[in-house]
Simulated assay, not measured.
Amino acid sequence: MIVGYARVSSVGQDHGGQVDRLKAAGAEKVFSEKQSGLDRERKALDRCLGFVREGDVLIVTKLDRLARSAAHLHQIVEALNEKGVGFRVLDDPSLDTTTRTGKLVFGILASIAEFETALRRERQLEGIAKAKAEGRTGGRPALITDDVKARIVALKGKDMSVRKIAAEVGFSKSAVQKVLEATAEDA
């Protein structure tokens, strides 16, 4: 069975053209959705990938309709391969895992994705090491200084309510409560 997947990024767009092309290419069942490709949760894609069976072929009009990145594409195609499902892209005939050449192209794409991931990880680790060497530990700098903490504790000592303390020091009630709880734990 040929199964199609169509996606557009926003509610204002229409995937009717994609659906028509997929059906013209022989898709007997088409899953479609209006969802950003960057969203991790794409329900129609999940249903589509759960629906396909051994011997089926999943088709899309363009590669970017299916995957967020080369790594994501490799992950999807690997899952399809494990199920014995082929994959084709209508706008790029070289991307067809039902042929030897298509499998080769996907192998090359997978290698590039793996290489990109390794480079990104290496740069990330270098950046972290550099920041640590410069004394930066990451994260957002603390806004509540020791002086503000002392002022919060002093105002609470005068039986002022958390809401009034928050208004006085210019922080949220929850921030004031966290300071008071931390102070109580330290005592």
Rank of each mutant, 00 (worst) to 15 (best):
155 L>A: 06
62 K>L: 02
22 L>K: 07
68 R>A: 01
68 R>K: 12
143 L>P: 02
28 E>L: 06
153 V>R: 13
65 R>Y: 08
163 R>H: 10
154 A>E: 15
145 T>G: 14
44 A>K: 13
163 R>T: 15
117 T>G: 06
34 K>V: 03
85 V>A: 09
126 E>Y: 05
149 K>P: 05
35 Q>F: 02
157 G>K: 14
94 S>A: 06
152 I>K: 02
69 S>C: 04
89 V>A: 10
48 C>D: 13
63 L>Y: 04
104 L>H: 08
107 G>R: 10
24 A>M: 01
141 P>E: 10
93 P>G: 04
164 K>C: 08
82 E>Q: 12
42 R>P: 12
161 S>E: 10
92 D>N: 14
62 K>E: 15
134 E>M: 14
137 T>L: 15
67 A>Y: 06
53 R>D: 03
54 E>H: 06
38 L>T: 13
140 R>D: 11
52 V>A: 11
41 E>N: 07
142 A>M: 11
94 S>H: 00
78 E>D: 14
24 A>I: 01
64 D>L: 04
26 G>T: 08
105 V>T: 11
162 V>D: 14
100 R>L: 04
110 A>S: 13
27 A>F: 09
31 F>Q: 09
56 D>M: 00
96 D>V: 03
65 R>T: 10
67 A>C: 08
116 E>M: 02
82 E>A: 03
80 L>P: 11
157 G>D: 15
60 V>M: 05
25 A>H: 12
60 V>R: 03
69 S>D: 12
124 Q>G: 14
134 E>Y: 01
35 Q>P: 05
116 E>S: 01
49 L>W: 08
152 I>Y: 01
163 R>C: 12
134 E>P: 04
128 I>S: 11
37 G>V: 07
79 A>M: 04
146 D>Q: 14
73 L>T: 02
89 V>G: 11
122 E>T: 15
142 A>T: 15
124 Q>Y: 13
112 I>D: 01
149 K>A: 12
63 L>G: 05
161 S>I: 00
63 L>T: 12
82 E>W: 04
62 K>G: 07
155 L>W: 08
55 G>D: 03
155 L>T: 01
22 L>V: 07
126 E>A: 14
